[in-house]
């Protein structure tokens, strides 16, 4: 199968993720969409790795997974604590950190 198709898939996933980040208000969903974007990137890395016959891309994908896992831990913790404090998971409500 032509590896370029994987790239198309990655682009599609990334766009879905980005759209989600921009239009959804629920912090959990936004978070999921960010994950989707990260995984789209991972897919693209692996596809490139395959296309160029070079393992670098796959290694980076592993790194990204580790970072994503760490991010999930921190991010979910923040979301949960914000939810506890404000009884809402809407990102628009948490707009206090401005000048």
């Amino acid at each position: 199968m032509n590896p370029v198709n994987y790239l198309y898939l990655a682009a599609l996933l990334f766009t879905i993720g980005a759209t989600g980040v921009l239009i959804r208000r629920n912090a959990i969903v936004v978070f999921m969409c960010v994950e989707l974007m990260l995984n789209a990137c991972n897919l693209a890395f692996v596809a490139f790795s395959r296309m160029h016959g070079n393992l670098d891309g796959q290694i980076i994908a592993f790194f990204t997974m580790v970072v994503a896992a760490a991010e999930v831990v921190v991010g979910l913790a923040i979301i949960v604590s914000v939810f506890r404090a404000r009884h809402s998971a809407s990102v628009d409500d948490a707009s206090l950190m401005k000048l």
């Binding site: 980005a18 921009l22 707009s95």
Partner: peptide, 17 residues
């Protein structure tokens, strides 16, 4: 310039994209 910093995470995301 300060008005651009409205505190809405999604508008920051838009400018990032």
């Amino acid at each position: 310039l300060r008005r651009l910093q409205n505190g809405f995470a999604r508008s920051y995301a838009v400018s990032m994209f």
